[in-house]
C-alpha cells in the first residue's frame, strides 16, 4: 500500500491525454464501388459531396436540391433506388442532419442522402410526392426534432399528443428532470 502511494503520477501538472477515438473503417463491397463511380455522372449539375461510412456511399447535398435528386436516383436506370429504407434525423447540436437511406431491389445497392440543416427553424422540402412511405417518417421527424417538411400533406403530431411542448429527440431536451404530475 505504501509503495503504491510513493509512485504517483510523475508530473501531476500535465493533464491526462484524452483517449484517442478510433474511426470506423470503410469496407465497400463491389456494388458499392460501382455505385461510387456512377454517382458523379448521374448527379452532374448539382452541388454535392461524396462520403463513405462502413459499407455505405453517402451523398451530402443542399436542402433545396433534395426533391430533384431523389427523383433522379429513383428513376435513373443505372441507379434505380426505388425503396426508401428509412428517414432519420440526427441532432449534432451545431446542426441537424436528415438522413435518407435508399436501396435498390433490382441492383441491390444502397445509397445514403444527407442534408444538413440549421438548428434554428430547420426547413426541408417534403418528398411524400416521390415516396408515399416518407409520410410518417417525416411526421415523426417533425414531432421529435422540429424539422418542418415543406409541402407535407398533413404535418400533425404522430407519436406525440397534440399540444406537447418541445421536441424530445433533440439533445437539448432534458432526460430526467420532468414531472409528469
Amino acid at each position: 500500500m505504501a509503495e503504491k502511494l510513493q509512485t504517483p503520477n510523475t508530473n501531476p501538472r500535465q493533464p491526462r491525454r484524452p483517449p484517442e477515438i478510433p474511426i470506423a473503417s470503410v469496407n465497400l463491397d463491389e456494388r458499392g464501388k460501382v455505385l461510387h463511380s456512377l454517382l458523379p455522372e448521374v448527379l452532374v449539375g448539382f452541388e454535392f459531396e461524396i462520403l463513405l461510412a462502413v459499407d455505405e456511399v453517402i451523398v451530402s447535398i443542399k436542402p433545396q436540391d433534395l426533391p430533384s435528386i431523389c427523383r433522379i436516383v429513383k428513376e435513373d436506370a443505372s441507379l434505380n433506388l426505388g425503396y426508401l429504407r428509412c428517414i432519420s434525423v440526427v441532432d449534432y447540436v451545431e446542426h441537424l442532419e436528415v438522413v435518407y437511406h435508399l436501396f435498390s431491389l433490382k441492383k441491390r445497392h444502397k445509397l445514403v442522402i444527407k442534408v444538413q440543416l440549421p438548428t434554428e427553424s430547420p426547413h426541408l422540402p417534403s418528398i411524400v410526392s416521390i415516396w408515399r412511405g416518407a409520410n410518417w417518417f417525416e411526421r415523426e421527424g417533425h414531432d421529435l426534432f422540429g424539422v418542418v417538411f415543406d409541402g407535407h400533406p398533413n404535418l400533425v403530431p404522430l407519436v406525440l399528443y397534440e399540444g406537447f411542448k418541445g421536441h424530445p429527440g433533440l439533445k437539448s431536451f432534458p432526460f430526467h428532470d420532468y414531472k409528469e404530475w
Partner: peptide, 23 residues
C-alpha cells in the same frame, strides 16, 4: 465502438428491421 455510423437491415418476422446507429 469506433466513431462512425452504420445502418443494418435484418429480416424480422414483420419485415425489414433496420437500425441506424451513430457512434
Amino acid at each position: 465502438p469506433p466513431k462512425g455510423e452504420v445502418y443494418l437491415r435484418t429480416e424480422s418476422p414483420r419485415g425489414d428491421f433496420g437500425v441506424y446507429l451513430v457512434s
